[in-house]
């Protein structure tokens, strides 16, 4: 009985999009950022990224095979993304074993305990990163300078990030104008020549990846745009009120993990809202929380926390922001 007709409900055709294509598309989009990090931080960055990716994939495979006893889906590439994103979120001199612990938390706790891909309420890479940040605050906040910076100042191996410099300085009573001499120039920031975690240094590489994902329709513009715009407007207002205490908005855009967060982390499909209006609100919330934490919070950087808090609110946003229904608002002029 080779030739039985197949019966199924319509539609009988489907798109050529698949989870694999989407996920590997994100991986491709992350390549420029990875390359920049390798360029500035050298071998350490390469080893860390590889460790993280291999650990994530391995943990997912083992958990699926031996704990959940389900069909393995590691080839879909989502674990690879988590691995890369996690690596991009740590300093390049992080001990290898910490990286592995982070990967275990990201995959094991943040993803697989909820049932795997698609069911996790929080971004796994961010959970891994925040876990590391809280468990090993010293290692996670001693930021190595880039290789290019070391060529000029060979003695300085680690230093605070630009955001850290400003935050501490302002707390001590110095004005922003004085502190600005201690931070890298905006051009350096844009191309990535500054201290920080692997992936949050080069704005241009991240934007390139973002454009690629937009082009491939993996992400929509709503979340990154409203996230970045909110940060820009909010910090702009603060800067306008008192430019000795608050840094200008461009600084905020180029430093820290804002770009990486807005383009790669907040747009994670699984943990972001399901409607365009919800996405705008989500981005707005992320932006607002980021600035609040950066300016008044205990940490100099707040993107991870902001996104995680908004992740928690996604079910609520989905409830409140249903798609606009056809024939609901009747305006037939």
């Amino acid at each position: 009985m080779a030739n039985l007709l197949t019966i199924s409900g319509s539609p009988h055709v489907s798109t050529n999009q698949s989870i694999n294509k989407i996920m590997w598309g994100v991986v491709i989009a992350l390549v420029p950022t990875m390359l920049v990090s390798f360029w500035y931080f050298g071998l350490g960055a390469i080893i860390l990224t590889l460790t993280s990716v291999i650990a994530c994939v391995l943990f997912e495979f083992l958990i699926q095979k031996y704990l959940l006893k389900q069909e393995s889906t590691v080839t879909d590439g989502s674990a690879v993304i988590t691995g890369i994103l996690l690596a991009l979120n740590v300093p390049s001199n992080l001990p290898i074993w910490m990286m592995i612990v982070g990967a275990l938390v990201a995959i094991g706790v943040a993803k697989m305990t909820y049932g795997g891909l698609g069911k996790n309420p929080f971004n796994p890479a961010l959970i891994g990163r925040v876990f590391l940040l809280m468990s090993f605050p010293v290692n996670m906040t001693s930021w190595p300078t880039t290789l290019a910076q070391r060529a000029i100042l060979p003695d300085v191996i680690t230093g605070p990030t630009a955001l850290g410099i400003i935050k501490e300085g302002v707390a001590k009573g110095e004005t922003v104008q004085q502190l600005m001499h201690n931070v890298p120039s905006y051009t350096d920031m844009f191309i990535g020549n500054m201290g920080g975690s692997l992936g949050e240094v080069s704005a241009i590489a991240i934007i390139l990846g973002g454009l690629f994902m937009l082009f491939r329709k993996i992400i929509s513009w709503h979340i990154p745009a409203s996230f970045i715009l909110t940060v820009f407007v909010f910090t702009g207002m603060l800067f306008y009120i008192d430019n000795t205490k608050f840094v200008d908005p461009v600084f905020h855009l180029l430093t820290g993990g804002l770009m990486l967060g807005a383009i790669f982390m907040a747009t994670d499909m699984v943990t972001s809202p399901m409607t365009k209006s919800g996405m705008l609100l989500f981005g707005f919330g992320c932006g607002l929380l980021t600035v609040l934490i950066r300016v008044w919070g205990a940490y100099p950087e707040g993107v991870s926390f902001a996104i995680l808090i908004m992740n928690a609110l996604v079910p609520l946003i989905n409830k409140g922001f249903k798609p606009k229904k056809f024939g609901e608002v009747v305006n037939n002029g």
């Binding site: 489907s14 698949s18 989407i22 879909d76 049932g115 698609g118 972001s272 399901m274 798609p323």
Partner: peptide, 29 residues
Amino acid sequence: SESKRPSTANCIRCAKCTFVCPMGLAPYQ
């Protein structure tokens, strides 16, 4: 080759179904 449905995977909440629904429903839900 065309008649078989592709194998299904978990919903990744990509929201594409809500974007393409011409009646503005939330099919995933």
